[in-house]
Amino acid sequence: MHFTKDHEWVELDGDVATVGITAYAAGQLGDVVFVEVPEIGKALKAGDGMAVVESVKAASDVYAPVSGEVVAANGDLPGTPEMVNQDPERGAWIARIKVADKSQVDALMDRPAYEAFLDTL
């Protein structure tokens, strides 16, 4: 699993990357009440807004960690947003992106690096 400084996680399987937000981010947001997942087929560039995670008092954009095309979105999330708080780094995956350039994933932080990054915050 790889991580961004914006607290997204990425897990690569073949050329498909599964993306979600980290447990740290979910904890910071508080109770998540809604998730807007991307449309299937949407072309994303790394850094584009791809989803929105909402708490009662805030709406946070989730950025695409890598470029590619959305091939799946977690349709359970809009109906069960609490999943983001309960199981952020697995069950609450947000989207699967068919990655154009796998090296973009390698360029992201691994878990020790992300944890070290969190310590600096």
């Binding site: 809604f34 909402e54 708490s55 009662v56 008092k57 805030a58 709406a59």
Partner: peptide, 14 residues
């Protein structure tokens, strides 16, 4: 009051 993330005081220019 609910679903306020649609509104100006939270979402501002969006």
């Amino acid at each position: 009051l609910t679903l306020s993330t649609r509104e100006q005081h939270i979402r501002r220019d969006k």
